[in-house]
């Protein structure tokens, strides 16, 4: 039973892991990203649609590009347009929700989803993306903590003036981080439509993007923390599903809905118990960079 549980976590978690790890990059650079849901949707659709005409692995790359493209729009609105970053993120979500549906209609004339595609091959029983999701958080952790780029990323989200004073371009650094964040979200979306299922469903990713945001906050804006939180949430979800079939009696005591609400309630609890002013979100998060402000 434990093995089965683990196996289902390995299928369910990667999408949220990718998206949550990506979200940390954008936010560590100082740009709020509540548009993860929309970027994941772009990735899910892009990958499934592309996989109809090309090998599925290439389709996944298209999904990654789609997520990055949507993120570039977000970055442009926030960095060049100095829009409210939350407004822009929510706008992205709503646009992608409608646009995905529209494209389903326009391209496939079916409101429920795309036709089936060839799923990604399985490596050792799981999709390659599953194994990538185990490796990637460590790679990103390394990049954030051990490369010059990571140092600058951490600095620009805390005090962009300091980075600018040392001759580094703040806008370019932030733009790159947001686009990368979208690429990761796109990868997460692609995992849903090419590995978990074999097509794009009209409701994808049905809230997993917001779960990724929760995981990022829960993981205190660190790649490993976010990945760990995503795994934890996915484990809880897998446990819930497995309990539903194996021990329905238990769900009489602790209903499914309560278990479903748990990740979000826990995140909120952790946030509200934190000491006020304790180091949490990057200091310059959400603030457009103003070179004239010192």
């Amino acid at each position: 039973m434990l093995l089965a549980l683990l196996s289902s976590v390995l299928d369910a978690a990667p999408a949220v892991v990718f998206a949550a790890v990506g979200a940390t990059l954008s936010e560590r650079a100082g740009v709020v990203n509540v548009g993860v849901e929309g970027m994941m949707r772009a990735g899910a659709f892009g990958a499934a649609a592309a996989a109809l005409v090309m090998p599925t692995p290439l389709g996944v790359l298209v999904g990654v590009a789609a997520g990055a493209l949507v993120a570039a729009l977000h970055a442009w609105l926030c960095i060049q347009g100095r829009s409210d970053q939350v407004v822009s993120g929510m706008a992205i979500n709503l646009v992608m929700l409608a646009f995905g549906q529209f494209l389903l209609e326009a391209a496939f004339s079916s409101p429920a989803g795309t036709p089936a595609i060839t799923q990604l091959p399985k490596w050792f029983g799981h999709s390659p993306l599953t194994w990538l999701a185990i490796v990637l958080p460590f790679v990103v952790h390394l990049a954030v903590t051990r490369t010059p780029w990571g140092l600058r990323l951490r600095a620009v989200g805390e005090k962009p003036q300091a980075v600018a004073a040392m001759g580094v371009r703040v806008t370019r650094l932030r733009f790159g981080a947001v686009v990368l964040s979208g690429a990761f979200a796109g990868l997460g979306g692609a995992q849903l439509s090419t590995a978990v299922l074999d097509h794009f469903e009209s409701h994808m990713p049905s809230g997993l993007g917001f779960m990724a945001v929760a995981a990022m906050v829960f993981g205190r804006w660190t790649p490993l923390g976010a990945a760990g939180a995503a795994l934890f949430f996915a484990f809880g979800d897998a446990l819930r599903i497995s309990l539903a079939s194996s021990a329905p009696g238990l769900l009489e005591v602790v209903p499914q809905g309560v278990l479903l609400a748990l990740p979000y309630a826990l995140t909120l609890l952790v946030l509200s118990l934190q000491r006020r002013g304790a180091a949490r979100a990057p200091a310059a998060l959400g603030q457009p960079y103003d070179p004239e402000l010192r």
């Binding site: 509540v34 809230g207 809905g257 309630a265 946030l271």
Partner: peptide, 16 residues
Amino acid sequence: ISTIMLNWVALSLVEN
């Protein structure tokens, strides 16, 4: 952040 979390809490508790 708090309202995003509470959306999902409400949805799960009520509809599930």
